[in-house]
Design a protein around this nucleic acid. Structure first.
Length: 234
DNA sequence: GCGACAG
DNA sequence: ATCTTGTCGC
């Protein structure tokens, strides 16, 4: 069958945090995206309930029509435990495996998680962006760090997310009356551009189409693999 | 010491 | 993230 690749960082938590502070110096908060952004990708990961297998998918979208163009999958073994603040060390390896399978390189990648809204200013989106030198946006469903004031009740309303005096993201309302999303620049994208893209990618629902598609696909993959495995006879 | 804590 | 039933609302 397909080989299950075991990625490993071989780093301790302290070393991981040192790497973050190092890579955080390379994060660019100014816009530096392809002239017209044509391809946007969404990525997501899922895990085996008990065990260390994990899955990931990358879904490529036409940035203009928001039509899904390609979906690729990856399966592997968790290389790092979940530790708040070190999520990228757990998901980047398999996300890289999935992204490498795309037939075209995305102009922008939207991640499930934070960008620079992170203790060391290097959440998953920023880490991914720096190591692949690709524009990224962090779009999380819940807050991780920072604080913000009240947000209007209408789509497009937002409040700056502040951390230690720095603006690290936005609490953004993508639909009237729904809970806000925590949007932060990953790499080579400004705060305003990050918000604009998330709003454009979420015309009908709270979450961006990229996130919805990736989440749906990765859960389908997980279900598919784990259920056929439960009825095995090797 | 206590509380918080992306996915 | 994952485990889970019913239930409120358009």
């Amino acid at each position: 069958m397909h080989p299950v690749i075991t990625h490993s960082w071989n780093v301790t938590e302290a070393e991981a945090r040192r790497i973050q502070r190092e890579l955080a110096q390379k994060v660019e908060l100014a816009d530096r995206l392809p002239d017209p952004v044509r391809l946007v990708a969404g990525v997501d990961a899922a895990y085996e309930t008990d065990g260390d297998r994990m899955f990931a998918v990358a879904v490529l979208f036409d940035a203009d029509t928001l039509a899904p163009l390609e979906t690729v999958e990856a399966e592997g073994v968790s290389p790092f435990p979940y530790v708040p603040g070190l999520l990228s060390f757990r998901e980047i390896p398999i996300l890289q495996t999935a992204l490498a399978k795309l037939s075209q390189r995305p102009d922008l990648i939207v991640c499930d998680g934070q960008g620079v809204a992170h203790p060391n200013r290097l959440g998953l989106a920023s880490h991914l962006g720096v190591v692949f030198d690709v524009p990224t946006i962090g779009c999380a469903k819940t807050r991780f760090v920072g604080d913000h004031g009240p947000v209007g009740n209408s789509r497009g309303d937002f409040a700056p997310l502040m951390l230690d005096g720095d603006e690290v993201g936005s609490a953004l309302r993508t639909q009237d009356g729904v809970n806000v999303l925590y949007v932060s620049p990953g790499h080579r994208v400004s705060h305003a551009t990050a918000r604009d893209w998330v709003l454009k990618l979420a015309p009908n629902f709270r979450l961006p189409e990229t996130t919805r598609a990736a989440d749906h696909a990765v859960n389908a993959l997980r279900q598919r693999v784990l259920t056929q495995n439960s009825g095995k006879n090797s």
